[in-house]
């Protein structure tokens, strides 16, 4: 219940934050954003840094850019949205732009934790902590988002798979780097389906799906699962089965059937409420549900001719 002792430093800017991380490097500093992964870890003894760097007051890290880079103000193009690292879940849900152009993200956010946590938790914190069963890692992976980070060596852009360690490597964020922004490409056909763990509220199984289509044919598919393994994972067999296929329910169902193909139940997470075997079993159902949500949006968008931003 009670965090261990640490020093607290409030950063006034990104540069200041980097400077503080450098200066207190010996204290194993951790970045405090919304605090909804870090503070529970501190209270339960899972983390004991001797210094925290609070980035909560850096306004440059907050906000959803309508085509603009929230940090620099530079236009990042109309085909993606930039989300500042400190943007809360509630802010994401309130964004019509994201609702429309990155529904996989808003879908996942809408079932994330609870009302109070959505008011406080941030996308940057969520992706950095990447708790097993967290919803946003799956959504950002399926969205093919890019995570921009700043560190002692400057700025770099990391694709979600590398950032989350979903490509088999270790998560790419280095010490003394902090997430500044998440850029989400616009794809209307996206959806997320979640079996919520009855106690933790994280995903027992969560599947995020994004489809790119051309005239009723699936040209690209990205399907990612959370809750099953320690890290999020792409469901390659499902994706392979989808690409080139027509957008119709039997295709979806057949593809979703393959969701558990590449995951050994013995490798899957297991607890008192759901064994690894059961989680792998659920994958197909939740993949299908996520894909159906994505397909529904293809259908909803089929009649529309307006370009992005028309209604904002």
């Amino acid at each position: 219940m009670f965090p261990p002792q640490f020093d607290y430093h409030r950063a006034s800017s990104i540069d200041d934050a980097l400077e503080l991380l450098e200066r207190h490097a010996a204290d194993d500093p951790r970045i405090l954003a919304g605090g909804h992964s870090l503070l529970p870890d501190l209270k339960n003894g899972r983390a004991s840094p001797r210094a925290l760097v609070d980035i909560g007051e850096i306004d440059a890290l907050r906000g959803i850019g309508s085509g603009a880079d929230v940090e620099s103000g530079a236009d990042s193009g109309a085909d993606e949205t930039a989300i500042g690292a400190l943007t809360t879940y509630a802010d994401i849900l309130e964004s019509d732009r994201l609702q429309r152009h990155a529904p996989v993200l808003t879908d996942a956010t809408s079932v994330l934790a609870d009302l109070q946590i959505r008011n406080r938790g941030t996308i940057g914190g969520n992706l950095t902590a990447a708790e097993p069963g967290a919803d946003l890692p799956a959504a950002t992976l399926a969205a093919d988002a890019t995570v921009r980070v700043r560190g002692p060596d400057g700025e770099r852009a990391i694709d979600a798979a590398a950032f989350l360690g979903a490509d088999g490597s270790e998560p790419a964020l280095r010490e003394r780097e902090l997430v500044t922004e998440v850029r989400v490409p616009h794809v209307e056909a996206g959806g997320y389906a979640k079996k919520t763990h009855p106690a933790s509220g994280y995903a027992m199984v969560g599947v995020a799906a994004v489809l790119e289509t051309d005239d009723g044919t699936i040209t690209d598919a990205r399907v990612a699962a959370t809750g099953v393994l320690e890290r999020v994972v792409r469901l390659a067999a499902v994706e392979d089965a989808l690409v080139g296929a027509r957008v119709e329910s039997k295709t979806i169902e057949a593809a979703a059937e393959r969701a558990g193909e590449t995951i050994e139940p013995a490798d899957a997470r297991s607890d008192d409420h759901a064994s690894g075997e059961f989680r792998v079993h659920l994958l197909s159902t939740y993949a299908e549900r996520a894909l159906e949500r994505a397909v529904d949006r293809v259908a909803a968008g089929a009649g529309g001719t307006g370009t992005a931003g028309d209604l904002e």
Partner: peptide, 16 residues
């Protein structure tokens, strides 16, 4: 004890 917190011991929420 594997269920030593509200993260693991599932008391019903309103939606349950």
């Amino acid at each position: 004890l594997l269920t030593n917190s509200l993260d693991s011991y599932a008391v019903p929420r309103a939606s349950h």
